[in-house]
């Protein structure tokens, strides 16, 4: 317990939990974390979380994948091994659009999947210390960093209790 970084409030009621999240950000507290058994719509806005980089990674991969697919189709059909198909020009873009689309989708989808796993720090062999096993069932946890400017630990604790936390932990 010597190196606790967060005060953890455990909530049973999702509405009070949401309210606690927005009340904490309204106090100017930042660096909050939340653990939920299921997604709550709009919680990322209540916590003022920045948009994750997964979207940008997916978009980039999709564009890269699509242009790789197009390059591959043009290179094989028009440059490296040109075959006359029905008298059409070697470089016939409408025929390559399905390739462009599919390669964009597959590379984008894989990037999306793996960057999501990476951004959540989930990979084989990783051991996760669970704050409370009930967090995968019906409890919600709000983590407030201890290192808030000018805020004492007792104050955070009192705030969480006042908001309806049924249990306080240190993490």
């Amino acid at each position: 317990m010597g190196q606790a970084k967060y005060v953890v409030g455990l909530f049973a009621d999702p509405h009070r939990f949401e309210h606690a999240c927005s009340a904490a950000t309204e106090r100017g507290w930042r660096g909050l974390e939340a653990y939920l058994p299921y997604p709550l719509h709009g919680i990322e806005r209540a916590l003022r979380l920045r948009r994750s980089w997964v979207t940008a990674a997916t978009k980039t991969a999709l564009l890269v994948g699509a242009s790789l697919g197009m390059t591959y189709a043009i290179w094989t059909s028009a440059v490296d091994y040109p075959v006359n198909i029905g008298g059409k020009p070697f470089n016939s873009w409408p025929a390559f659009v399905p390739v462009l689309f599919e390669s964009g989708v597959i590379i984008g989808a894989f990037t999306n999947f793996f960057s999501l796993l990476y951004s959540c720090r989930i990979w084989p062999g990783r051991r996760v210390r669970v704050i409370d096993p009930r967090l995968t069932d019906d409890r919600f946890a709000l983590l407030v960093p201890l290192a808030q400017k000018g805020v004492r630990q007792e104050e955070i604790e009192a705030f969480l209790r006042e908001q309806g936390a049924e249990d306080i932990r240190y993490e």
Binding site: G86, K88, P94, V97
Partner: peptide, 12 residues
């Protein structure tokens, strides 16, 4: 729209 166009264009 593209499916209709592309298949007609391709089969010719």
């Amino acid at each position: 729209g593209f499916s209709q166009f592309m298949l007609i264009w391709y089969a010719n």
